[in-house]
Amino acid sequence: MQASDGARTVEVRVPATSANLGPGFDTLGLALSVYDELTVTALEAGELEISVEGTGADEIPTDASNLIARTIRYAYESVGIPAPGLRIAANNGIPHGRGLGSSGAAVVAGLLAAKGLLAGRAELSDTDLLRLATELEGHPDNVAPALFGGLTIAWTDEESPQHKKLLVHRGVAPVVFVPQSTMSTSTARSVLDPAVSREDAVFNVSRSALLIAALTQSPDLLLAATEDRLHQDRRAEAMPETDALVRALRARGFAAVVSGAGPSVLVLADGPGRRLEAAAVAEEHTRGSWQALMLAVDFMGGTVREPAEGA
Rank of each mutant, 00 (worst) to 15 (best):
Q2W: 00
A225P: 11
P161N: 09
A75E: 04
H169E: 07
G310Q: 05
A280K: 11
G54W: 11
A308T: 08
G150I: 07
D126E: 15
Y74E: 11
A7W: 14
V176W: 00
I212F: 06
I72R: 02
E277D: 13
N20S: 06
V205H: 07
A90R: 05
R252M: 02
V257G: 02
L67T: 14
A90H: 04
S190Y: 14
V246P: 01
E135L: 15
A19E: 06
D298T: 11
L230K: 03
R121M: 15
H163R: 13
G260C: 07
E283Q: 14
A201K: 08
V172A: 05
V168P: 09
T187M: 12
G271D: 05
S181W: 00
Q2C: 01
G138N: 11
A214S: 11
G301M: 02
Q217V: 14
R250W: 05
A261N: 04
G97P: 01
A75F: 05
G29V: 13
L211A: 01
L112F: 14
L221A: 14
S33N: 02
V107E: 08
A114S: 14
L215N: 01
A106P: 05
V12P: 02
N66A: 09
V265Y: 02
A256K: 07
T152Q: 05
T71I: 02
P95H: 10
T41N: 04
T41M: 10
R207A: 07
V175L: 02
H96M: 15
T9R: 12
A109F: 08
P145E: 08
L112K: 13
E284G: 11
A280F: 00
G29R: 05
S160G: 12
L86H: 09
T182D: 00
R274W: 01
W290H: 04
A213R: 13
I153T: 12
